[in-house]
Simulated assay, not measured.
Amino acid sequence: MNTRIDHDWHTERMKRRILVIYTGGTIGMQSTDKGYLPMAGFHDLVAQQLKTGAVDKLPKFDVIECSQLIDSANLTPTDWTQIGQLLAIHWQDYDGFVVLHGTDTMAYTASALSFILQGIDKPVILTGSQIPLLELRNDAQDNLITALLLAANYDIPEVCIYFNGRLLRGNRSSKIQSAGFDAFDSPNFPWLARVGIHIDLQQSLLLERKVPSLLIPEFDAEAVAIVQTYPGMTARPVEAMVDDTSVRGLILQTYGSGNPPDANKALIQTLQRASDRGIAVLNITQCSQGKVSQGAYATGATLNRIGVVPGADMTLEAAFAKMHYLLSQSLGVDAIRDALQRPLCGELTR
């Protein structure tokens, strides 16, 4: 399934060993007449690009290249399981991990891995690039080298995204730029580190170091649906989701501090029916900053009455991944509703 390539260009002084998992994404793509596409042989490209005069300062690392490389726009929750399994298989053999991933859904995968690997005692750092490593001018090499150095030289016991000088908690991250090098930010949580001339790690922000269970769950890709409120919306799309027996979790993106169009009686009745049917309904804000205060306005209080769970300041990516994770744990709906409101690995502020 995977190809493992060992790189022994590094001095024996470097004691920590890092595993790089290449899943696909722009960082390893090549230009074709159809646009950028994933290319095989990424390990050879890395070997060529990193043979510099400073290579002896890099940690010792190995590369695993997944046999089925994906454009991250095609990511499904099943891919989270496969990445998690790769990490679990090699967990005891390495001191840190770098996961190379496409930017479009990187924040979803970082969020999912944060729940799958709760309590980790080693760094897992996702990175990628906006321009492929193969191109003369690119952001790929700096992101890769810095992610390797962070994973090897710093005690960071959580899943993170490193991109363009920012180390971010994975489940607090969102892609905010489609073309800029500063593609990611964490609007409701400080950066874990700022990387410039020096690496300024905010140790006090890091999660507590524990020992993960490494029990990697299987995910049902159809179990979670998302609906966003908009002016003049009808209840029909939500009715279709609620009537779909495969849907067990519904994420509602409402206005401002968590306000739905409560004058839309059919919509509220449909959400009530979802709650009564045992679907966990989670309310998050459409705003990139701030949190849901369900009940600050009468419209939001309506959701409290029908059993909709307020999602605090979770990103959409974290909410989606957390719902999937909780549904994979064979919990009852009341336990899921309770856990959605509690921080499991730093994904929300109470």
Rank of each mutant, 00 (worst) to 15 (best):
I284Q: 00
G290Y: 03
K34T: 14
V247E: 00
E222K: 15
T81M: 09
Q203E: 15
N264S: 04
I64L: 15
Y36E: 05
G119P: 04
Q203S: 14
G256Q: 06
I89Q: 13
M323G: 04
M323K: 07
Q130T: 05
P260H: 00
L136K: 09
H101D: 02
E218Y: 09
V124W: 02
E239K: 11
Y94E: 00
M14L: 09
K51D: 12
A88C: 04
P260T: 01
D313M: 00
M29L: 02
S293L: 15
N171F: 06
L133W: 02
F189M: 10
F320W: 14
A266I: 08
N2S: 13
G332L: 10
C345Q: 13
Q228E: 15
C66H: 05
G24A: 06
P38C: 11
Y108C: 10
S129C: 08
A147M: 07
M1K: 11
F320R: 15
W91V: 08
D185E: 13
G332F: 01
D56P: 08
Q294T: 07
I336Y: 00
T32F: 00
R277S: 15
H101E: 10
D200K: 09
A301Q: 13
L100N: 04
V242L: 01
L149Y: 04
T127C: 09
V46M: 07
T229Q: 05
W9I: 11
T234K: 01
P260N: 00
L136H: 09
S31F: 08
N283S: 06
L201R: 08
H43R: 01
G96Q: 00
A40Q: 11
L113H: 05
R137H: 12
Y162Q: 03
T11A: 10
V99C: 03
P123S: 06
K57A: 12
L327E: 02
R4V: 14
N2M: 14
R305W: 10
A88G: 07
L144Q: 02
